[in-house]
Design a protein around this nucleic acid. Structure first.
Length: 779
DNA sequence: ATAGGGTTAG
């Protein structure tokens, strides 16, 4: 208790000053305030101003605000400025501006300190419009030649990216100092205008460290690493920011080792680091996936006492989860006081990256506030783990929560639709985009084209394509691949030519599409030509898929010898699809010698691959080597090959099927085609006679692949190998453009049950993607 | 009072 309080009834300005001088608690302050109100001293402007300015740095903001609004009817510029500055410092620049406006209406007086504060407020809102108004007030009130005012004006325009106006103020300013120069320079740096920045830097009367640091940042941004380094070396008085700028220059240009090296050097030179520096270094570790160094830096951060920065915490979460150290990431997440939105989102996607979907779900569920990124992380996490329907369900749920999807999340969802062939939802999203006039950037556009193409809606895909303002290579690729997979081979190839004319350089993927198109039509010569031009003209090294296409193209045309030679010439190991193409070609062209040789080798090489077994069985079956067919079947059983092509397609369409009751080797075996070979084999070997149930099927002669197939079809029905409940709708998509293997199976089902079956044409994506006709794998 | 460094989440 201050003894003076009781005598404060006679309080006056002098006494107030001495009181405030000794004052320590808010309680005391409030007592003085009450006294001044009672005595009426509060109406003395100097008195109230004194109280106000004292309160501002000492007590919670609302006390000062109350005094200002209630007792400072005619605030002097100093008081007004202080309050405006407090608003800006509290990160509420709009309050500063509206205070200024209301004071203006009351014809309050301002001074040359006022507008710099306001301009800072405008700059932090990047509000050029408000800034212009302040600018006109500046001129009206005659502060137009004040150095500080002009510097903050330059800064305002520079921050808003309007360098013309910034430059105008700069050029017309009667006095310039190094701040003026540095500010103009920073403006060009922010815009990434190397030319103009270099010009300004060269014109500067005296170079200073701040300007040089800005230039390092500029060079870093524009990828001129050597220039940045050179400038850094030339700086006489390097400070922490010079070092940090160069560290981040290396980091942003992907030279992570250099970044870390410089960070170490910096420490060795005794330069103090702060959180900004450490964040760059941690990020470099994350990219390099070296948690050992990361841990050392983490320790350093703790020692320096900067661990508390949320952004550093987030960088560490990212570091540990990139290195698979999810438990350490969680430790960082749980430690410390603050976790912001980014911490939560980083932790969730860290879990997803490490495959802990359940942990991610749990964290997601317990989040205080989910934003678009949280939902998006979870949705695309599901999609990455092939849990597409959960991804789509979550997307629906997100909307129930009133979150508006943005471009990025739409990309994830549309591609999940594509993978699920959920065309309805995909179309709904497309309509949603148009309805809400959302911007379709080229990534989203490409995703939509891809979806429509893979769902067989060429027209919709073309419409999206033509509506796009910007197109990337990937956009053209989606179009070219899409057209080819929908059988519009000529159009695909002509779009390829259009693409080149438009100045877009084709890449590896483009050629996967182009070669795929040729393969589709059996355009052997064109295929060879494109393959060569890819290497010679476009300097693209062929990858496995390109080779796969060529092998398949040659093989399908019966050029088996040549196809095998291509496989032998490949610089990399042929993948399963490429081998499959050759083996498939052997079967198609009845080259049993090569087929057996290749097939034997392949089931040895990939004993758990279903497709090779099936193809080899088929080759044996066509020769009537039934004993070998059974042998292959045993080999499958032995290697636990149970995932057999065909099964998932049928399951996906709700077809229930029970096979071959007597065969217990594979309780759920459901590969129709393969079963048929086995049935045929048993028939031959065991002399089985079909029952009287046998149904005769009319098969178009043209569509018969081999005699075996028609034989098998009869058998399948005769043995009752397949049953479909009559109520089950058979709805397998559209465009019956599938390869002969699928075709046979589908026809079999269709004929046997007298149903119309429409096949959605998605497998052909797979077809191109893997370079062979193992289309059933996809289902 | 005005000027320089930054990563991290989908």
């Amino acid at each position: 208790m201050s003894p003076n309080l009781h005598t404060a009834i006679t309080i006056n300005l002098t006494i107030l000053k001495s009181l405030l001088h000794r004052l320590i608690s808010l309680n005391h302050f409030n007592q003085i305030l009450s006294q001044s109100i009672l005595t009426g001293h509060i109406h003395n402007t100097l008195f109230s101003t004194k109280l106000f300015t004292f309160s501002l740095p000492s007590f919670p903001f609302h006390h000062s605000l109350r005094i200002f609004t209630h007792f400072l009817q005619n605030p002097n510029p100093f008081a007004s400025n202080s309050l405006m500055r407090a608003h800006v410092d509290r990160n509420q620049p709009h309050h500063a501006i509206s205070l200024y406006n209301s004071l203006s209406r009351r014809s309050a007086v301002f001074d040359n300190y006022t507008h710099p504060i306001l301009l800072r407020a405008c700059a932090s809102r990047t509000s050029e419009l408000e800034g212009r108004q302040v600018h006109s007030h500046v001129l009206k009130m005659g502060f137009g030649s004040d150095l500080y005012v002009n510097n903050t004006l330059i800064n305002l325009y520079a921050v808003c990216g309007n360098m013309e106006s910034a430059r105008k103020v700069f050029d017309e300013s009667p006095v310039l100092d190094k701040v003026s120069w540095n500010t103009v320079l920073a403006g060009y740096v922010q815009l990434g205008d190397v030319e103009e920045a270099e010009r300004v830097y060269a014109m500067m009367p005296v170079r200073n460290t701040i300007a040089s640091n800005s230039m390092i940042v500029l060079f870093g941004k524009s990828g001129c690493i050597e220039k940045a380094r050179q400038l850094f070396d030339e700086i006489e008085e390097k400070d922490m920011i010079s070092w940090t700028a160069l560290v981040s220059c290396y980091e942003q240009n992907g030279i992570f080792e250099e970044a870390l090296g410089l960070f170490v050097e910096m420490n060795a030179n005794g330069v103090v680091v702060d959180e900004v520096t450490v964040i760059s270094a941690v990020s470099a570790c994350a990219h390099l996936m070296i948690d050992r160094t990361g841990k050392v830096i983490h320790g350093l951060a703790t020692k320096v006492g900067i661990e508390g920065y949320v952004s550093l915490k987030n960088a560490l979460i990212n570091l540990y989860s990139s290195c698979g150290e999810i438990l350490n990431a969680r430790k960082v997440f749980d430690g410390g006081l603050l976790a912001d939105q980014i911490s939560w989102n980083s932790m969730i996607s860290g879990y997803l990256r490490c495959g802990s979907v359940e942990d991610a779900e749990m964290l997601f569920g317990s989040m205080p506030e989910k934003d678009v990124v949280s939902w998006s992380a979870m949705i695309s996490g599901y999609a990455q783990h092939e849990r597409f329907s959960e991804a789509l369900a979550l997307f629906q749920e997100m909307q129930v929560h009133g979150i508006r999807p943005d471009e990025t999340i739409l990309v994830s969802v549309v591609s999940a639709c594509t993978r699920l062939a959920a065309l309805d939802l995909g179309k709904w999203i497309h309509a949603y985009i148009s309805k809400n006039r959302l911007k379709v950037n080229f990534i989203l556009g490409t995703t939509l084209i891809d979806m429509y193409m893979k769902c067989g809606c060429v027209e919709n895909a073309l419409e999206v394509f033509h509506g796009l303002q910007e197109k990337g290579v990937s956009t053209w690729n989606a179009l070219i691949l899409g057209l080819a997979m929908n059988g519009l081979v000529q159009k695909s190839l002509s779009m390829f030519e259009t693409m080149k004319k438009s100045g877009t350089c084709p890449n590896e993927i483009t050629f996967v599409g182009v070669l795929g198109a040729c393969r589709h039509m059996g355009l052997v010569d064109e295929g060879r030509r494109y393959f060569n031009s890819m290497i010679e003209e476009h300097k693209i090294e062929p990858n496995v898929k390109h080779y796969g296409c060529i092998v398949d193209l040659l093989g399908r045309s019966g050029l088996l010898k040549e196809a095998e030679e291509v496989i032998e010439s490949m610089p990399m190991a042929p993948d399963v699809a490429t081998w499959g193409a050759l083996l498939g070609a052997c079967r198609k062209h009845n080259n049993n010698e090569m087929g057996e040789r290749v097939g034997r080798k392949l089931i040895q090489l990939h004993p758990d691959h279903d497709g090779f077994h099936v193809l080899l069985s088929s080759i044996y079956a066509s020769k009537g080597n039934w004993g070998n067919v059974l042998e292959i079947r045993d080999s499958m059983a032995q290697h636990g090959v149970v995932k057999i092509p065909g099964c998932s397609m049928l399951e996906a369409n709700g077809i229930v099927h029970e096979f071959f009751a007597g065969d217990k080797t594979h309780p759920k075996i459901n590969d129709i085609e393969h079963m048929l070979y086995v049935v045929a084999a048993k028939l031959k070997i065991e002399g089985y006679t079909p029952s009287t149930n046998e149904v005769s099927l009319d098969i178009d002669e043209e569509e018969k692949e081999t005699a075996l197939f028609s034989h098998s079809e009869k058998l399948a029905v005769a043995f009752g190998l397949i049953t479909i409940p009559p109520t089950t709708p058979i709805r397998i998509m559209k465009n019956l453009r599938i390869c002969s293997d699928c075709h046979t199976v589908v026809k079999l089902v269709s004929k046997a049950f007298n149903r119309k079956i429409v096949v959605r044409d998605r497998h052909r994506f797979h077809h191109f993607k893997h370079g062979s006709c193992s289309c059933m794998d996809f289902w």
